[in-house]
């Protein structure tokens, strides 16, 4: 198992951390590009600096936190409908 695990790059936690940091760097670069590229706005406020980055992050965190609350309300055991 250990030998097999070493064959795969993604099995090493430090590589996953590298990917994660790389993603943050990519995000930072994309936000900085906002200073260079003129994003002509579709509805007005989407022209604000880093609007899409902030909205994407906040939307997804809000989505997951809401879904966790939803789970308390709607989640039942797997055989709920079979009983």
């Amino acid at each position: 198992m250990t030998e097999e695990n070493n064959r795969y790059w993604l099995d090493r936690p430090e590589n996953v951390t590298r990917l994660y940091r790389g993603l943050w760097i990519a995000g930072a670069l994309l936000v900085l590009l906002d200073l260079v590229v003129h994003r002509h706005a579709e509805v007005g406020f989407d022209g604000w600096f880093s609007f899409y980055a902030v909205y994407g992050f906040v939307a997804c965190v809000a989505l997951v936190l809401t879904a966790k609350v939803l789970r308390r309300v709607v989640m039942r055991s797997e055989d709920y409908y079979d009983r």
Partner: peptide, 13 residues
């Protein structure tokens, strides 16, 4: 650029 920002920050979330 707008779409990449949206997607990369969703992935970051």
């Amino acid at each position: 650029l707008a779409q990449l920002q949206l997607l990369v920050f969703s992935a970051l979330a």
